[in-house]
């Protein structure tokens, strides 16, 4: 792999990452009037994050069992409205400990 090739690919990646972010912001400066579209846009973040998280979270670690344990920990901590950092660290440690236990037994 040549570094110049990688560098050009990275520039292209940066461009196609920036374009979807900037287009709507640059073009739509007016307020949207339709209450349907307003409601739709309001619900977008929840739908996006739900779809990004499940089911991919179950294949995000070394194995399914540790991923399920980590997910349950994340759900429990989030349900108790802990901060993002606490939830993330809690899930990582749960996965790590589960994987160690699985190796021992």
């Amino acid at each position: 792999m040549k570094l110049e090739r990688a560098f050009l690919a990275i520039i292209l990646m940066a461009l196609v990452t920036y374009i979807p972010r900037v287009l709507p912001i640059a073009i739509f400066q007016k307020e949207i009037k339709s209450s349907y579209i307003k409601s739709f846009l309001h619900y977008v973040p929840f739908a996006v994050l739900g779809s990004l998280t499940f089911p991919d979270i179950f294949t995000s670690t070394g194995n399914l069992v540790s991923a399920i344990c980590g997910t349950l920990m994340a759900l429990w901590l989030s349900f108790r409205e802990k901060s993002l950092v606490v939830v993330a660290i809690g899930a990582i440690l749960t996965v790590y400990i589960t994987e160690i236990i699985l190796i021992i037994f």
Binding site: P45, F46, L49, G50, L52, T53, D56, I57, S60, T61, G62, S66, A67, G70, T71, M73, A74, L75, L77, S78, K82, S83, L84, V87, A88, G90, A91, I92, L93, V95, Y96, E99
Partner: peptide
Amino acid sequence: SAMGIALYAMFIAII
């Protein structure tokens, strides 16, 4: 490998 779950855990904490 355990850190792979971090991103998803954050998503859960947000929603």
